[in-house]
Design a protein around this nucleic acid. Sequence first.
DNA 1: AACTCGGGGTC
DNA 2: GACCCAGAGTT
Length: 355
Amino acid sequence: MVQSASFDLPASPIPDSGAVLDWYDRHARILPWRVPPQDRARGIKPNPYHVWLSEIMLQQTTIAAVGKYFAAFTRLWPTVADLAAAPLDDVLVQWAGLGYYARARNLHACANAVMENHGGNFPQTAARLRDLPGIGDYTSAAIAAICHDEQVAVLDGNVDRVMARFLALPVPVREEKALIRARVQEAVPERAGDFAQAMMDLGATICAPRRANCLVCPLERDCQGTRTGNPLTFPVPAPKAEKPHRFGHAFVIRHPDGSVFLRQRGPKGLLAKMTEVPGTEWVGEEKDANFPLKGQWKEAGLVTHTFTHFHLSLSVWSIQSDQALDEGWWACIDALDNEALPSVFRKVLKAAGLQ
DNA sequence: AACTCGGGGTC
DNA sequence: GACCCAGAGTT
């Protein structure tokens, strides 16, 4: 077979946006921050504050995990002005448990930037949204498309997977991001917001990570992946690094009055500015505990936790004492929901018999 | 371009 | 256990 010299790129199909929108009109997921396509057709526009808040929360996070957090944030802070006026520490308390805490710090900074530099209104174009803290390529495009139908390609993990299959991409997605972007961009219709949300819904419900329901997929006609007979072999996984193991000790100091000693973590790095149970550094080998107080420490168990790039084993120790450490505070054990405690430290407190 | 940064749903 | 999720910021 002779290949034509007039094409630099192999001929690859473009998603049928009409078919995708028809599917979306019938099968759009109902979400708290979303305007359904029927309402959108009547001219009802989404609330940019709600769209922005949901998009930040949904970064690398499932819809199931976000639900309660979105409800709590919009109840406590109904507008971007309310959120900007809140103390950062209050925002961190409400974000605790959701992970990737830089998002919460950037969320607060972004709210303040919108108030101070944009008169309290979010910018309407992807290019200008992109300049705000915590808003990158994906989120800027998503907000501009969903709120204002800017005809821009919106590429998230779902769309990458759908397109990797649609194109039968033989290499990891990150090596052909430009091709994916170009093909999606060519497909973006006037209903850019509905199209973006449709592609994501498609990836979440039909072209899912370990399941491809090609029989009911609106992209099936031109899909190269289903044509191979093995659409699930796409996307080709990128090689992944092994997670090292780290070890440490956590010290639960229980006051006779029923409180527990907590402190704030440093301003940079893992779990920055969040609340912690005092403890040792986390290092690559097991070491004996160097206790911060003299007294009768009791072993309270072992906590294991996996972060993005390492596994952690924490030995938990507890003691009854009224001695505080250098910096920190006594927190009532009945009000720990008011503390910005990441999940690993909630596990530690549970191991010590609290909460 | 590679690395850092959480946590949970799901299989 | 492994995979992956409406990714962004830093180096």
